[in-house]
Each structure stands twice: as structure tokens, then as C-alpha cells.
Computed example of a mutant assay.
Amino acid sequence: MTYLRDARFLLVTCGILLGFTFPMAKLANQVALPVTTWVVINSLGASIALLPLLVFSRQLRWPKGRQWRYVLIAGPLTFAGPNLLVFLVVPKVGAGYGGVMFALSPVCTLLLAHIAGLGQMNRQRYLGLLLGLSGAVGISLTRDNPSFPAEPVWLLIAALLPFVLALGNVYRTIDWPENASPELLAFWSHTLAALIYSFIALGSDHAALWQGLQSNSKLIGVQLILAGLIAPLLFRLQRFGGPVLLSQIGYVAAGTSLLVATLIMGERYPILTWLCAFMILLGVIVGVLKSATVRTAG
């Protein structure tokens, strides 16, 4: 299936799926689901989806050599870390605004990628990044949602998202083990993350934890499916698109989260915010119409 190697298809698909996770995080917070439990759900969903793929393709094996270092860092830190931040900030700043913070990661990733010597950018890609960044900044400035007073401390914490994402995007490319399967790395990264955060979650109130899981089975089921769909596509995008292109899923996620937050969550944003969202969409289109030369690891 060649489209699973097409970075543009992977970019749009991952971005749309990721955009749904912000409203889901808001719902999970509203029912008081513990943050560590939410992280476990995301990593567990990815592992469950990837396991049969690896078994049937006979690729399932233990990590070896530097693969251990990669999965220990990639899972608990570069994936679970952003999930923790999303869960914390979305109830404070809104699902739509939280999604916009993802849209700032391409600029941070571009800077780090150049420092690391990972990519060559053409003018069209720069234009796409500029349009997307302008749209994201515009949404931040035009945001007017009385349901979320946006206290400065929470805006500051939300602003950490693009930097955390950028570090993960660049690290996963720099340290990609040679000839390693994207699906295998994704499986072990998320499996280790699920195990580590499960121990943390079990260290809290056991009764409240199990009650929360049982009473919110539908919400958890939907998020497990979302996580299972995102993980294999995201690692393929990392492998075939490189860190800079990967980071642009934030643009797609920002627009998707605004739409979902408005239609489903009842959040309201002014017309200028939607015009800025259209600018983000335009930036994605311009940025991916012609591939930039980006060196990936492995």
C-alpha cells in the first residue's frame, strides 16, 4: 500500500486524528479521570493496535542494542510528555486553543532541525510554515472564549507544548536505529510508556482508579481506538517525512480541534479565529504540495 509511505497522506490523516484527541482530553478531565490513567490509555491503545500487525508480519521481537535507548526515551518522554501537558492545559485554555499550541511546533522543530543539520528547506516549505505560524498566532490573538479565562500561568504552561513536541520530533529522527521497523519501534515505545505510567497510576487511589475506568468505558474505548490509529501512522510519518514535515501535523490538528470543539463541545470562537484557521489550512497545502529535501535517519 504505497499511500502508507506517502508523507502527505500520513500528514493529513495523523493531523485529523490528533485533532480529535483535544476534545477527548477535555471530556476525560471533566469526569475526573487521572492524568496518568489517560496517558496509559493512549499508549495502551497504540500497543493493542500494533501487536497483531507485528505478529502477522512476523516482525515482533525484543528491542536490541540502541533500540532499547530509543524506545525508553521515545515512549515515556516524547509521546507521554505531550499527552500529560495536553490533559493538564485543555480544561484551562479550551480544546480549540490547546490544539493551536500544536500548530506552533513546526517553527520550533525547524529551528532545532537546522541546528542538528537534518534538513534542507525550499522556499515553498518556508512559505507554508510562515502561513501556518501566522494563522496559529492569529488564533491566539483573536481567541475570545469566556468559558476559559486563560490565566497567564496556564497560557505559559500551554506554550511549552510546541517546544516539547519539537524536541521529540528531532530526537526520534536523530536517534532512529538503523533499519528498524517503524511499527516495532512504535509498539515497544508505547508498551514501555504504558507499563511505566501504569505503575504510577496504581500507586494512587486504587478504588477511584477502577471506578473511573468502569464508569467511563465508552470514552476510554473511543480514545483507545484513536490512539491505535494514530501510533502506526505517526511513526511512518516520522520515518518517511522527517521531523519538519512531521511537525506540521500540528497545523492540521489545530484546525480539526477548533472544528470539533465548536460543533461537539460547544466552544465558540469569533470569525477572525476561523479566518486564521483557514490560513493554517492554506499553509499545510502550500507546505506539502512539493516535498522538501529532509534527511531522515536509518
Rank of each mutant, 00 (worst) to 15 (best):
M1F: 12
T2F: 14
Y3L: 13
L4Q: 12
D6Q: 09
D6L: 01
R8I: 00
L10N: 05
L10D: 08
V12S: 11
L17A: 14
L18R: 04
G19E: 07
G19S: 07
T21Y: 06
F22E: 07
P23W: 11
A25M: 13
K26G: 13
L27R: 13
Q30R: 12
Q30F: 05
Q30V: 07
L33S: 01
V39D: 09
V39Q: 11
V39L: 09
V40R: 09
N42I: 00
S43V: 00
G45P: 10
S47H: 01
L54P: 07
L54I: 01
S57H: 07
L60S: 05
G65S: 00
Q67I: 04
W68S: 05
R69G: 15
Y70V: 06
L72H: 12
L72M: 15
T78A: 10
T78M: 14
T78E: 09
N83H: 14
N83V: 14
V86P: 05
F87N: 13
V90K: 04
V90R: 05
P91A: 13
V93G: 05
V93Y: 06
G94E: 06
G96Q: 08
G98R: 05
G99K: 07
L104P: 04
S105K: 03
C108G: 09
A113I: 07
H114V: 06
A116C: 05
A116W: 00
R123L: 10
R123Y: 08
Y126T: 03
L127P: 02
L129R: 02
L129C: 13
G132S: 09
G135T: 04
G135P: 08
G138D: 04
I139P: 05
S140C: 10
T142F: 11
N145A: 12
P152C: 02
V153A: 15
L160K: 08
L160Y: 06
P162G: 01
V164S: 11
V164H: 11
L165Y: 13
A166C: 09
V170Y: 02
V170Q: 01
R172F: 03
R172W: 03
P177M: 03
P177F: 00
A180D: 12
A180Y: 07
S181Y: 04
P182W: 06
E183A: 15
L185H: 03
W188N: 03
W188P: 05
Y197D: 00
S198D: 07
S198R: 04
I200T: 01
L202A: 03
G203K: 00
D205S: 09
H206M: 10
A207S: 13
L209T: 00
Q211N: 11
S215Q: 15
S215W: 11
N216C: 06
I220P: 12
V222G: 10
A227W: 08
G228P: 12
L229G: 14
I230L: 15
P232K: 12
L233F: 14
R236H: 15
R239L: 15
F240S: 10
F240W: 15
G241C: 09
G242T: 09
P243F: 05
L245A: 14
I249M: 15
A253K: 08
A253I: 09
A254K: 01
S257F: 01
L258E: 05
L259H: 04
I264W: 15
I264H: 06
E267T: 06
Y269F: 14
P270N: 04
T273D: 07
A277L: 01
L282V: 12
L282E: 03
V284I: 11
G287C: 04
G287E: 02
T293S: 12
A297T: 13
G298P: 00
